[in-house]
Design a binder for these strands. Structure first.
Lengths: 243, 243, 243, 243
DNA sequence: AATGAATGAGCTTTCATTCAT
DNA sequence: GATGAATGAAAGCTCATTCAT
């Protein structure tokens, strides 16, 4: 009898929220956390702000994730490492030339990671790796190692099939990751430091880097072979000039 | 009305400190600050730790620099922006081919910045630009703009002398800075994330990037010209294969 | 990544505190703050001490008030400026002679402000106005101006009804506020400097000051009118009809 | 031989300073300290600022005064308590009516203290007495007590000579000091809080307060006597013979 | 006598995490 | 499950005072 109108008024609203509770909560929190971690970095992201952006209270955040660090790990798993299995399968099933496989790899990386918010995590790691050794170790094991293994397998396939000639596998790996790192830096941080808008078109940049790389990697005699392979269905051809 | 909490018989120790008073202090503090800023970033570096590393107390730091932000700016001036004048003069006086000038520029950058601790400041800026707008603005004005102007002048010289053919100056600038940024990331952060030590030889990496770039920039007919210019006295030639 | 430093078995104590949560907190903090601001002044009052006196921790204070300055403003609003509306209404409804209105005003001021802890805020402002311009501006706008306007309206009513003859309104205002200020100084500060207890009876002092003032303000012909309204000098009679 | 020109250049300048050293130093420091204490209060006045204003270094200040508190006491002695002996003699030698003596007292106070910077010390004491018990005790003993004794002697003289009729000596004292305190508050603090410039003429205010007081104090039969002595209300007559 | 570099306790404010409801 | 009030360690900066020169 005391505050019936007030309680009644809140009931519907609360009801509405209950609908998407339990299962939705962690996802909303991870989503908010990704935004904020990418925007501010790990240390500067406040737990309360994550909760607020997810529409829940601070307490609820810690109900789902025992600490800010665990929240971060969950964000990484959700957005990056959790997908390696799928990608591994995808590349396992790939049956074009290895040159196309490399091109496809680059493109998939850009479409599914590089161009998304998730790439900001790389920037975050670069900035804060040394301050959070646990996170660094986690990232190293859950992201960097699998990614390198994946790329390494691709390159090794090229070698095994006589398509690639690779003197130093580590150096080759690095030639593939370097442009990725650079693009991500531009996108998430350096771009903001530039006086004018940088006219960097990520897809063209990546394509040109890949081509440069391939012409160094490819066994010379096979070069024309590569050209012929280019139109396979997985990678419909790079001939575009713009965009 | 604070009371002296210690009567102290550390006379000798204090004596030793007085020796290198006033002139030495700011330098020692800047040195310690550079170390810590590079290691931990701006936000995570505690003023007291800087002071401790310089062998003084918290209060002494603020005797020389009115705030952490001013300390950071002083570090940047000391290690980067304060040197642009000298570099500008150096390039003003350069009279070889512009291709050699670009090679020389890259090499000078690596020797005097990239290979030193100061390059860590770039990593710091990448990680924290968005959280400290004042610092970003300062860095943008004191470092990025002068650096771009310097490089732009070099490229323009190439164009004016008929050596270079440049369609888009901004894009050309970016082709020069990209490898710098990438190297710095590897050195200060990603390297620590790598399972094995990356076998990246910075000087070879830079040289190869420059060559790739030049063969795109150079006016075709002048290409042999460039080859001839290579032996100018300022930068006696890049023909080395290793290291 | 702070760690809980205590596991704490103070359950009962905590229980008791939760009882009067949220609604009670701000009031308790304002109460403690008023005590300490009056006792020590603004600058010398430590936030932690306010919190401790309110029975909460340092952090809790800043949960309710974003800064020490805002805490102070809230204290002023709670104890002084928030009451002007009510007082304005009260005087709007007054329908005795304006002389009685002045006496009533003095008495109300003493009963509701002068005699309470809140009057110590005046002492604080006197001592620290020059060191905290923001606070001074706030106090000037939220307290001094409304108070002067209120008194000015009373005096103007006397003039409009032919009861008072006032040459200089500002000077007249000052004649009313001077004894208030003096009493407050005695109560909160000078009294503590006096060797013996000062035998100052505030109510008698105020009544005598008012009478002196009125005999100067009153239009001579009305003087006997006024005389009729008042019964004794300690208790000057409250001819008001309403409220 | 090392820096002869530099040393020579400084010599003259230093020489000039030596001229007024030793004796002048404490006076300059007291002068600067009075300014700053009055402007900012005791706690908020920084020792270094006092030294700077006196043209010496921080260390020198503590060479002459062992602590900020002692500096303050010295300021009080220099500007207030050190003068009581002289004033006592002056009043000892006075041989006009006691009414004139009271008027003279008020005027002398205003001319030599109230109207000078030194009156700001009263404001300072009001604001900070409770925070600095040592200072309060000192002020109480060195200023308030002598001042009260002086006034008390004057009033007692009036009683002894049959000029005054005083029921309660403490209350009478207070009637004399109240206007002094009020004027000082207006001058040093409240004035700054007032929206418009207050039209308070200190000398008229004091004269009128004294007259009001005297007509209450004076034995009725002597009243006409007193009337004869005074000429106009702005300048209430200086019946004193000496000095 | 004079200097000023050095000190460190002390103050306001922030924020991850806890826990009674 | 969800909440949000409460905590307290930690960080930047100030300033009276000391003391070797």
């Amino acid at each position: 009898m005391a505050l019936p109108k007030f309680i009644a008024a809140r009931t519907e609203e609360v009801q509405a929220k209950r609908e998407r509770r339990k299962e939705a909560r962690p996802g909303e929190l991870l989503d908010a956390a990704l935004d904020l971690f990418v925007e501010k970095g790990f240390a500067a992201t406040r737990a309360e702000e994550v909760a607020a952006r997810a529409g829940v209270s601070k307490g609820t955040l810690f109900l789902y994730f025992p600490s800010k660090e665990e929240l971060f790990k969950a964000v990484v798993r959700e957005n990056i490492s959790g997908r390696f299995a799928e990608w591994n399968d995808e590349f396992q099933a790939f049956d074009g030339s290895t040159a196309d496989m490399v091109r496809y790899c680059m493109r998939v990386w850009w479409d599914r990671l590089g161009a998304t918010r998730a790439s900001g995590i790389t920037k975050l790691i670069i900035g804060e790796a040394r301050n959070f050794p646990d996170i660094t170790a986690f990232y190293q094991q859950e992201v960097i190692k699998p990614a390198q293994d994946l790329i390494r397998r691709i390159l090794q396939r090229g070698v095994d099939r006589g398509e690639f000639r690779i003197a130093d596998m580590d150096y080759a790996l690095f030639s593939i990751t370097a442009p990725m790192v650079f693009l991500v830096m531009m996108k998430h941080s350096l771009g903001a430091c530039m006086p004018q808008d940088y006219p960097l078109d990520p897809e063209r940049y990546l394509a040109s880097q890949v081509d440069t790389l391939l012409h160094g990697l490819l066994v010379r005699g096979d070069e024309k072979n590569d050209k012929n392979d280019k139109n396979d269905k997985n990678e419909p051809g790079e001939g575009r000039k713009k965009k």
